[in-house]
Each structure stands twice: as structure tokens, then as C-alpha cells.
């Protein structure tokens, strides 16, 4: 027993009194870094910065959160940094689908099994959008047009989620598309509004304002059930009025992970701490507002359930990408 111990106990006691955390709790000693394996302004970046702000505003953590973007090599840079920071309990990474696609497409030696899954925060939906002036009113119209001639679909990045969905649609209906990659979701939506391409598979939050302005038309959502938000967004429609692609005869499903991971070999107590912290973030009104704005699927998972989900998704991406010929040569 060191002489310093009683004082530390006292501090711990205060901490327990101040915040509803279990007595044996681990607490961060230094600023917490959230690594974003994507550029500034994208969906993952927005979510990381929203969490940073929510934690700061409600005083949820004793140390500030720092957000660092490491987008190099389609995010490989950020993931490798996490993989190589073994045992560092002050580091988190927020993931998007490039957790699976980047190692498969580039051959960078990395997999989700190399790092520690913490918590799934939400799943991002994908919607099939067309220009409001196009003649296609339903997914069936679109499918018929796609079979008749090669349509152009714009998406974010290459060999990532948008292109995977595009290829999956093509396979499901036996048609071919020209996929045109752009840098960000906002630009993609604008290309569609400007009539430079025929369709997009934007996330809800990337296209919502154009929808509300009557420039874009949603045809169907790539989920097994309709979106839960019933609040009307346009004069006549709510998110929940968009049919699923499956019920419209286009059998494709895709959801994108928004979750947190830590470096390998971190103490169990630290994982538990961040799971608690993120759960409290999920309870704040700001977070719930963000979920409604972006029509997110608010599924959350931890531990074994999360690991099983990850294994399943990884396998699915491998299959999808192998069929599309996207695997690294």
C-alpha cells in the first residue's frame, strides 16, 4: 500500500458522488482522441464532432475529447494507427463501411478483429434518389429504365458502400450501371439535382434538404423495414412513407455501421467506461435530434452481439466485393 492511496480513494469517492458511475470505474486521465478515418465534413466526422460537443456541453467526461481526421488511403491510415496503439485507453475510432471495404479493396493488412469493438451507435440508411423531374415515380419504373439502357449513378468514393450498392442493384435486376465516383455525399446530391447523373444512393441526411425543396424524389430505402420517422418532411411525405426496396421488387439491403472501436489490448474497465459514456450520449436530446434529422436506424449493440454482427457483415462485404471484382489484386 502506498502512502498516496488514501488520497486517491478520497478523489475516487468524490468522483462517485459527482457522477453515477460504478465504484470500481476506470476514468480517463488524459484528453480522449477520437480518430475519424475520413475527411472533415463527412458523415463520420459530423457524428464524431457532435459527440465531442455533446460530451463537452453536458460535462459527461472529466477530460476533453479531441477529434483527429486520418483519411489517408481511404481511412487505412486511421485504422493502422489504432491497430498500432496497443493498450492505449485514451483512443477511439469511429467507423464507417471502410472498416470492411478498405482492407478488401486496397490489401492493407488490417481487419476489425485486430482492434477492440466498443459499441454500435447507429446504422446509416441508404435511399435510392432520382431527380424530381425524372419520369420514374416508383422503384419499378427505375428498374424498367435501367434494364432498357445504361443509367448513370453517382456515389461517394470508389469501391465503397455506394458502389457496392450500385453493383448489388445491377446484379439483382440484371442491368448494368455507369458508376461515377465523387468526393463527398453533398456533391453527389448536387450532381443529381443538376441533372448530370440519373440516380444516387445518398444517405438520408445528405439529400434531405433537396427532397424538401422538391428537387429530388426518393424511390425506396435499402432496409428490411421502413424508416421509423413519421414526422412529415415535405408537404405530403414523411420518411416512413418511402417504401422499402424489397417491397418494391428490388431485393437489395444495405446499412452502414456507425460504431466505435478501441486499440487492441485495452483494459476491460476502460471499454466499460466508454460504453457507459456513449450510452449517456445516446440519451441526450441533441443526439436524438441528430438521429431524427438523419433518419438513422438507432440500433445499438455491444459485446458478443456486436462481434457476431461484425463477423456477418465482413463476410457479406467479402462476398459482395468479390462478385463485383473489387478485391485487391
Amino acid at each position: 500500500m502506498t502512502p498516496g492511496l488514501p488520497r486517491r480513494l478520497l478523489v475516487a469517492a468524490f468522483a462517485v458522488a459527482a457522477a453515477p458511475v460504478p465504484a470500481s470505474a476506470w476514468e480517463p486521465q488524459r484528453p480522449i482522441t477520437i480518430i475519424v478515418p475520413a475527411g472533415t465534413g463527412g458523415g463520420a466526422d459530423q457524428m464524431a464532432r457532435a459527440i465531442q460537443a455533446i460530451v463537452a456541453k453536458h460535462g459527461l467526461a472529466p477530460q476533453p475529447i479531441v477529434v483527429a481526421n486520418k483519411a489517408g488511403g481511404a481511412g487505412a491510415e486511421g485504422f493502422l494507427e489504432i491497430k498500432n496503439s496497443r493498450g492505449n485507453p485514451h483512443m477511439l475510432v469511429i467507423t464507417l463501411s471502410n472498416l470492411f471495404t478498405t482492407p478488401l479493396a486496397t490489401g492493407v493488412p488490417f481487419s476489425w478483429r485486430d482492434i477492440t469493438p466498443v459499441k454500435m451507435m447507429a446504422l446509416d440508411e441508404f435511399v435510392l434518389w432520382v431527380n424530381a423531374e425524372s419520369p420514374w415515380r416508383t422503384a419499378a419504373d427505375f428498374v424498367a429504365a435501367a434494364r432498357a439502357g445504361k443509367l448513370r449513378i453517382a456515389g461517394t468514393g470508389s469501391r465503397q458502400e455506394d458502389q457496392i450498392i450500385t453493383v448489388a442493384i445491377g446484379k439483382a435486376i440484371g442491368a448494368e450501371f455507369t458508376y461515377v465516383p465523387f468526393a463527398g455525399g453533398g456533391t453527389v446530391a448536387m450532381q443529381l439535382v443538376g441533372g448530370h447523373v440519373d440516380a444516387t444512393v445518398n444517405n438520408p441526411i445528405e439529400a434531405v434538404s433537396h427532397w424538401r425543396a422538391g428537387k429530388l424524389r426518393p424511390l425506396c430505402v435499402f432496409d428490411s423495414r421502413r424508416l421509423p420517422v413519421t414526422q412529415t418532411m415535405t408537404a405530403t411525405m414523411a420518411w416512413s412513407d418511402i417504401p422499402t426496396c424489397k417491397e418494391s421488387g428490388l431485393d437489395v439491403e444495405y446499412l452502414m455501421l456507425r460504431g466505435f472501436f478501441m486499440p487492441p489490448g485495452v483494459p476491460q474497465a476502460a471499454i466499460a467506461y466508454y460504453q457507459g459514456l456513449l450510452e449517456r450520449v445516446r440519451q441526450t436530446p441533441e443526439w436524438q435530434e441528430l438521429m431524427v434529422q438523419g433518419a438513422f436506424n438507432t440500433t445499438t449493440m455491444e459485446g458478443d452481439a456486436f462481434a457476431q454482427w461484425l463477423a456477418r457483415e465482413e463476410e457479406r462485404h467479402r462476398t459482395l466485393m468479390a462478385e463485383a471484382g473489387f478485391l485487391a489484386r
Partner: peptide
């Protein structure tokens, strides 16, 4: 977006 404003045409 954090302040609940939705940039865009509206």
C-alpha cells in the same frame, strides 16, 4: 447541423 439548422434550399 449541430444547431439543428438544415443547410440547403429550404
Amino acid at each position: 447541423i449541430m444547431w439543428g439548422l438544415q443547410p440547403g434550399p429550404m
